[in-house]
Design a protein around this nucleic acid. Structure first.
Lengths: 134, 134
DNA sequence: CGGTATCCTATTAGATACTG
DNA sequence: CAGTATCTAATAGGATACCG
């Protein structure tokens, strides 16, 4: 039955399986970049359209320049965000989502809407939980 | 006239708008619990079905007992996870998703599949990025 | 305007030991 | 088995100052 085994092996070599549940899988780093404290908000924020650094900073309430810059670099590196800096003064840089970034953003927006819409239930659950162990 | 205006105002008061982009909105804490380093993996892991503490720990490769315990408590508090501990020895505790937790899990699974399936592109993007500034 | 560099603190996470 | 408690290490994050 070696034929079958060989073709499976080749398939695995051509398309290695990625698994976020595995500690050393590269997909986990990307997942952490996407779902990190600021990653979600930056990606979802850009889903509304191209935005400048300072616009994005106002949109993502509470993010520091440092963290916004760092988050954008990581997302750009993974091919989720485009950075376009037309020459000129005053300097101006536009950030936007790549096609892949847009697909990720769509998922995140769904999640955001689900959570925002469920907040009454969630807050009730919290109160119940806290009351039970008070 | 006023009747309409009043009922709209009441509707807003009864259902305040939650916005993750706002720093002090409670939805942001929930978002951080859900999309935190271990939150995603715990919720998505439980999407396969009810699981015991140690099973879940094996499934979520790399999580420590402490972090798994902490993550589960937070998710239970927000009403996403159920904890059932039937009396007996040896002790046994089953964790499962609530209906809301299942809906969140479905979104996360979509995101995971999207990212895992895009890893070849993502890794190519990373190499390009790194090469360009080397 | 759009960042980077530095320094310092707070939070998170891991290792280890222990318990019902 | 399913945790908790404690201590330490690593990392994320914020404040400030400065640059092209």
């Amino acid at each position: 039955m070696t034929t079958r085994a060989v073709s499976e092996t080749q398939a695995e070599e051509n398309q290695p399986e990625f698994d976020v549940f595995a500690r050393r899988c590269p997909s986990r780093q990307t997942m952490e970049a996407v779902t990190g404290r600021w990653g979600v908000l930056v990606i979802a924020g850009l889903h509304a359209g191209s935005m400048r650094f300072s616009e994005l900073r106002r949109r993502v309430d509470g993010v520091s320049e440092k963290m916004l810059s760092q988050t954008l670099h990581t997302l750009e590196r993974d091919g989720l965000v485009n950075r376009v800096a037309p020459a000129g003064f005053p300097s101006r840089v536009d950030y936007s989502l790549t096609p892949l970034g847009s697909r990720v953003a769509a998922e995140l927006v769904d999640l955001i809407e689900l959570l925002e819409g469920s907040m009454p239930d969630i807050m009730a659950a919290r109160e119940r939980y806290d009351r039970e162990r008070a």
